[in-house]
Design a protein around this nucleic acid. Structure first.
Length: 214
DNA sequence: CGAGTCAATGTGTGGT
DNA sequence: ACCACACATTGACTCG
């Protein structure tokens, strides 16, 4: 049980009525600008002295807020009794607390999203670099393939005949020859660069036969 | 003194 | 119509 503090806010309805409200329609909005007189919150007719809730009151309200963010009227009256506050004050405190909670939550969400976004941007950068390197490697590989095939072509027009299909790593055509299926494996756009001069029908038929056990 | 915080107020809206 | 709520705003207060 929290010690009841002297009721510092006796908000009288009559004083609420004394506020001057000047509504002003803004183009395309329903926002209103209001002017208010100083609230007479101490009930003595003096100037407004808005007092803060005590640490104990705030602590108690916080504990209650942690349990439940919404405030049903039974709990409101009970809390107000415990804290020596007007139930209206408790309701106001919860409304403001929810607003603060929402702001904080939104800020946290924003920071999380921002962090995730930054991570993705960095990863994209890395992937683009990697793509560039791979393209360079591909270009180099194409150049050496061309040189190799030219060398093979120049050395002899004969490819060794029956040696084909023995799995020899030096078997030129099995490694260098352009295979028509390659085009189907997504090297799109690059196929034009893969022109190999020694490609001919008989080789094609031989490899086709090996592939399907003919 | 300016910026920030917080209790309080006013208004619009949706649910019952 | 009434109520509870979100949201914008005000004004007292605090702090660097």
């Amino acid at each position: 049980m929290i010690k009841a503090v002297p009721s510092q806010v006796e908000v009288e309805l009559s004083s609420l009525m004394s506020f001057g409200v000047h509504s002003q329609k803004i183009e395309g909005e329903t926002r209103t600008r209001r002017k208010r007189r100083k609230a007479k919150v101490d009930g003595a007719g003096g100037e407004a002295k808005k007092r803060r809730l005590s640490d104990q009151q705030v602590k108690f309200l916080e504990m209650s807020f942690v349990k439940e963010k919404k405030l049903e009227s039974g709990r409101k009256v009970h809390l107000a009794g415990e804290l020596g506050l007007d139930p209206k004050q408790v309701a106001v405190w919860f409304q403001n607390r929810r607003a603060r909670y929402k702001n904080k939550h939104l800020e946290e969400e924003y920071l999380k999203l921002k962090s995730a976004h930054d991570t993705v941007v960095v990863e994209k950068c890395h992937l683009e670099n990697e793509l560039l390197k791979l393209k360079e490697k591909l270009a180099e590989a194409e150049v050496s393939m061309r040189k190799l095939s030219q060398a093979v072509n120049g050395a002899s027009g004969y490819n060794g005949g029956g040696g084909e299909g023995e799995g020899s790593p030096t078997s030129s055509f099995s490694t260098v020859t352009y295979h028509p299926l390659v085009g189907e494996f997504g090297v799109d756009g690059e196929a034009d660069l893969m022109y190999i001069p020694e490609y001919n029908f008989s080789n094609y038929m031989m490899e086709w036969g090996n592939l399907f056990g003919m």
